[in-house]
Structure formats: C-alpha cells, structure tokens
Design a protein around this nucleic acid. Sequence first.
DNA 1: GTTCTACCAGACTCAGAAGTCTAGTTCGAT
DNA 2: ATCGAACTAGACTTCTGAGTCTGGTAGAAC
Lengths: 212, 212
Amino acid sequence: MSGAVAARGRIDKRQAILDAAFLVFAREGYARAGVDVIAAEAGVAKATVYSHFGDKETLLREAIAASADQALTQNLAVVDRLTVRGDDLRDTLEDVGFRLLQCYCADRSWALRRLLSAEINQFPDLLDIVHSRAAGRVTEALADRLARLSVAGHLHTPDPVLAAEQFVALLTGSMDARAGLGTRRIPHAELRAVSRAAVDTFLKAFAPTPRQ
Amino acid sequence: MSGAVAARGRIDKRQAILDAAFLVFAREGYARAGVDVIAAEAGVAKATVYSHFGDKETLLREAIAASADQALTQNLAVVDRLTVRGDDLRDTLEDVGFRLLQCYCADRSWALRRLLSAEINQFPDLLDIVHSRAAGRVTEALADRLARLSVAGHLHTPDPVLAAEQFVALLTGSMDARAGLGTRRIPHAELRAVSRAAVDTFLKAFAPTPRQ
DNA sequence: GTTCTACCAGACTCAGAAGTCTAGTTCGAT
DNA sequence: ATCGAACTAGACTTCTGAGTCTGGTAGAAC
C-alpha cells in the first residue's frame, strides 16, 4: 500500500529535505521560503523537517554545505583531467575550460552563488562554509596542475596560483553578463567559444616558448 | 527651531528615501527590510514613503535604478581616462584598471550586485534595469577605447569587444573570492597588484608587436 | 504481540510586517 | 490670515510564516 514516494523506506528523508530546501531557498530566498513549502516539496511533514534540523537557519546552512560539497566534487573531477598526455596542450586546456564552464553554468551552481550573495549579510559564516568546501580548493587544485605542466616544460608560469586565478577569470569573467546571473540559458557552442578565447589569451601569456 | 535634519526644507525627501531604501534593502534583503525601518533611516514618516512610491516593490526598483545610474556614471568616468597620451600605455592601463577595481569594490557596488543576485528570481526585470544602465555599457565603452588604441597602432585587438571582456575579466575575476563578496576590505596595494597582473597578461596577449 | 522510533496531518500560538487611516503640524503661496 | 499640499506620529487591520503540540500510523527490533 505504500505510495511510490515512500517505497524507498525511511532512510534518506534527510537527503530529500536537503535537496528540497536548497531548491526552495534558491528559488524564493531565505526569508520568503516557507518551511511548510520545503516539507511539501520533499514529500515530508513539517514536523519531520524540524526533528531533523531543529530550525530554519540550520537547515539553510546544511543545505548550502551539501550543495557546495557536490559542486566541489564535480569541479575537482574536471580539474583532474588536466594532465600532460600525448595530445596537444591547447586541446586539453580547451576541454577542461569548457567543462569548468559547464560546472559554473549549471543551474545549481548559479543558484548556490545567488543564494550565497543574498544571505551573506545575515549569515556571514556561509562564506567559510562554501569557500572551505568549494571555491578556494578548485583554484588551488588548478594551480597544482599548472605547476606540474610548468615543471614539465609545457607552460611558463612563474606564479601558478596567479595563472590559475587568471585562467578561471578569463573563463568565467563574462558569464555573469552572458547568462543574466543564471536566468538565461547558454548554448554549448557559446561555452566552447568562450573557452577557446580564454585559452587563446592564456596561452599567449603563459606559453613556454615566446614564439608567435 | 527646525532640527538640523529638516533644515534643508521639504525638497529631496525623495532622494533621502531612495538612499535609505537602497541601504536597508542591501543590508537586510528585500523580504526582511521593513518599510518603517527605511522611513526611519531616511528621517521620514512611513506614510511619506508610500505617498512617494506607492508600494515596496516600486521602491525597490527605483532604488536599484538610481544606484545603477550612479555606478554607471563612475565607471564611465574611469573608462574615459583611457586615452593615448604621451605616457606609456602600460601605465595608463594599470591606472584605469586600478580605478575600475576601486569602482567594482566600492561598498555600494558590492551591495548592488548582491541585491541583484538575491532578488533576480522574484523580480526578473531588475536585470534589464541594471544591465541597460550599467554593466553592459561599461564593456561597450571600454571596447570603443580599445578599438581606438588598435587603430592608432598601440594595441592589436582583432575583436575589441572580446578584448574588453577579457580585460574586465582579468581585473574582476578573482575579486569575489578575495573580497568575500564584499565582506572583506581590500587594501589599495592589493588592488594595484591585481591590476598590474591583469595588465601584464593583457599586454602579453594584445600588444601590437609580438616581441619578447 | 509489544514496544520504540520515525513519521504524518493538521490545528494552534505568536510575532512581525505591509499597507491604511486619522488627527494634527509645518510651510509656501495668495 | 488663510488655504492647501506635504509631512508626521502612531494606532490599526490583516496576513503570513516560524515553531510547537496533539493524536494517530507504520515498520523494525525483540
């Protein structure tokens, strides 16, 4: 007699609540979001939400932390592809750039950044939650890869951290305007073009031999 | 007997309300912000706010529009400094970059971007209000200047719009992380360093003679 | 079978805030 | 002097939403 929703058993209600909470918080903002709406969206009673998380504020923090963890995982998986294979470095960079842009432009990524911007004044600790779990580490990991490429002679980056920052900047710098803060959908072809342009400029600045 | 506040007469209550509204909206977010708080901050009765703007939503739009206008003016004034004088182009670019960063990192700028991010889902038209008045036009104006510099032989930018986008990206790309979305204060020296690094990379990519 | 735990549906309390209304005040113009 | 427009202080209505509580159900452990 159990409905399709409850069929999975009693486990991972928690995860369902976190997902629904992030969705609703992102859509409506913290203040407008109703806990009853979140509960309904998660297919759960309001009291269950409170028994799991205590109050709305805690729910926000946990939902954001979970979302940041998820984003970090995806980003690191992309950065891991940046290895010195037999292929052309330019192609590899363009591919990694494109995939990073896909991560950056995912709905959940925009939602996370918007939500963070929105609530940073009320909950300053959200910054640390997200930064320790996502933003900072990606640049760091990227810097590691660039440093390796430098050592191997494929790049010339005296300051790998700066190079990583600028690579990410060239990729994502124009996306806020292009994507209307996530309200406009961007075609893959445009992401490829942006990545190509970014790699173009990046390699002009950091190619090992100052040729051409 | 009139207090110092009311001494200026009945005029420009409107502007005081707009300023206070932006301040409070930015600090608390649209939903949390109380119209009575805004009125108090503006040194005005709540009824006066309603007689001027009708409702809270209109007040938000007008406050954001006014703030965007202000930001645009400041940014354009900076871009106007990008001319081909006798000086070194690098110095000029670094100066313009530094000043653009100062605009970007002004409290009101962070507040505007955060507020826009926060309310973009509830009020999608805010995007057009701000974009038509600010973000888009700055890159445009910058592209014009870069095109001129190209024609004069000081730069090599086949696509001035792309070059302008990338210049801005190199400048501002790392500021979100550095400034903690505007919660951390950034020393001038760091802004100068970021500008120098950006111009470095920019010139490597777009200098007219592919020398060195 | 009993019991314990997690859950559900919904009623309930309480606080805060939008927007309205009233009565009185100040200022400029005629 | 007086009239009208803009303003003030604050009471008032109404609604929304956080968090609590109650009574009842389902499944798992024993």
